[in-house]
């Protein structure tokens, strides 16, 4: 009876998860609405005031002429041209910027501040992503596996002498702490310093980037008024790759630990339910490997 199996699967596991997911979406939408509606209205009103003040100050301009001008500017901006820069500014499609864009495509971040505007560019982008995304997944997978292989195994406490246990736990703590500092703390500080953001904005950029959401409201190396070093965006691309690999390891360890904990919980429940079991017949709980 395969149908019964499918129905059981839906009723037992999927339906509650699906309902929880929909509720979570609605909850998020409601909270964002409450938080952002006012901020947006404020921002819009502020801009309207600025525009009115501008028209009052410069009476030779009429509303329609200004609107048309702004329209042209925005159309250019959507295509990646920053009108604030002058013609001496580096191109959006020089090698460094193109390399950074290629990186955001294969990692599926896709900030959207830069996108191909030609038909040939769009077609190439599709095929490039079709090849590049799987390659990136394989690359990060093996990089993550390599990193994980160098981590120690967190065995049962009684299996090792005290100092060995301590070293293992310290090793894991050091890996997580150093990783957090090198991936999630220092880069936002550096980006904040270079871009003129607050640390909070820098951290928000780092999180949105490494979770591969990539809104594009904060992107490094895009301010035409700043003079960046040549390798700045390339360094950012390397940070993204390393960050994604590190995150893959951390999430892998997390899922592994959760899986082991659930096994342990099943074991404990099994022992609790077992009637009249002798104390010495208790089976040894399994090792909890942190690495392969």
């Amino acid at each position: 009876m395969p149908r019964a199996g499918v129905c059981g699967c839906w009723g037992g596991q999927v339906l509650p998860l699906l309902l929880a997911y929909i509720c979570y979406l609605l909850l998020g939408a409601t909270i964002f609405q409450l938080l952002e509606k006012q901020a947006e209205a404020q921002s819009r009103d502020q801009f309207q005031l600025e525009k009115l003040r501008f028209l009052e100050n410069y009476t030779c301009l009429d509303q329609q002429a200004l609107e048309q001008f702004v329209q042209v500017i925005l159309e250019a901006w959507v295509k990646g041209v920053n009108p604030k820069g002058n013609s001496t500014n580096p191109s959006n499609w020089d090698f460094g910027s193109s390399f950074f864009f290629a990186g955001t495509v294969v990692t599926t971040i896709g900030y959207g501040n830069l996108a191909p505007s030609t038909e040939a560019g769009q077609v190439f982008c599709v095929f490039y992503a079709l090849m590049g995304i799987p390659l990136n997944v394989v690359f990060l997978n093996h990089l993550g596996t390599g990193l994980r292989a160098h981590l120690t195994t967190l065995d049962r406490w009684e299996d090792h002498p005290r100092h060995s246990q301590l070293l293992q736990v310290l090793g894991l703590a050091l890996f997580l702490t150093l990783g957090t500092l090198v991936i999630l703390i220092f880069p936002p500080m550096f980006f904040s310093h270079v871009e003129g953001w607050s640390f909070r904005e820098g951290f928000y950029f780092a999180f949105i980037t490494l979770s591969t959401i990539g809104f594009g409201d904060y992107v490094v190396g895009t301010d035409p008024s700043k003079h960046y070093i040549a390798v700045y965006r390339s360094l950012a691309a390397i940070w993204i790759l390393l960050g994604l690999a590190w995150l893959a390891v951390v999430l892998s360890l997390g899922s592994l630990l959760l899986h082991r904990c659930s096994r342990l919980w099943q074991l404990i429940r099994g022992l609790d339910l077992k009637d009249g079991a002798a104390p010495d017949s208790e089976p040894r709980s399994q090792k909890i490997p942190i690495s392969a």
Binding site: V105, A120, G121, F124
Partner: peptide, 8 residues
């Protein structure tokens, strides 16, 4: 990818 996109 960067080279091709740069050219296009």
């Amino acid at each position: 990818g960067a080279v091709v996109l740069q050219a296009l």
